[in-house]
């Protein structure tokens, strides 16, 4: 993951002019959108929450200390929004997985069946566990950074990640087969 310079240049410009803010949106949109998308696997929810996060950012722009802090702030806001939204949805009993194909740019050729099976397994993880996995594997964050983002102790992150991987590991080994031959019965 690329390190952002510890300056406020972009934030300062965004405070004065909306075009600079648009630049800032453009710069972080993949990160913000993907965090939500990987959490819900729903395009419209991902865009709604991402837009909401950016509106929050616009309201709180003067509290951002540096461009690096901006990325941290966005990640933290988005993860909180994911949990809030998910909790609200539990009451509404809504189906979170989106059946529509993702229109975003695909970085490389993918095994879509395997991916959707894996996505379903990740989606079945508890909220915090899912967030830890997403922050670790999507954002390549260190455990300390994940701990800061989720506002939990590092040891909790370590344990949560290990448990998440333990939950996924046996499942993942069968995923390719499941994707090819259907669910494997024990």
């Amino acid at each position: 993951m690329q390190e952002l310079p510890a300056s406020r240049e972009l934030v300062d410009r965004a405070l004065l002019d909306q075009e600079a803010f648009a630049e800032l949106v453009e710069k972080h949109k993949a990160m913000v959108y993907s965090l939500v998308y990987n959490f819900f696997h729903n395009r419209s929810i991902a865009e709604d929450i991402a837009q909401d996060a950016y509106l929050d950012l616009y309201r709180n722009l003067d509290r951002i200390e540096s461009d690096k802090h901006l990325a941290f702030w966005l990640r933290q806001t988005v993860t909180r929004k994911c949990i809030d939204w998910s909790r609200r949805q539990k009451h509404r009993r809504c189906q979170p997985l989106d059946e529509a194909p993702e229109p975003g740019v695909e970085p490389r050729e993918r095994d879509l069946m395997l991916e959707s099976a894996l996505a379903a397994k990740v989606a079945a993880l508890p909220e915090k566990m899912r967030l830890v996995v997403i922050l670790r594997f999507q954002e390549d964050l260190k455990l300390t950074e994940i701990a800061e983002t989720l506002d939990v102790p590092v040891n909790t992150v370590k344990t949560t990640l290990r448990r998440a991987l333990d939950r996924l590991r046996p499942k993942v080994s069968h995923l390719a087969e499941e994707a090819r031959y259907g669910p494997i019965r024990a």
Partner: peptide, 9 residues
């Protein structure tokens, strides 16, 4: 790979 960043609309 599955959780790689993707672009919104």
């Amino acid at each position: 790979r599955m959780l790689a960043r993707r672009e919104p609309a």
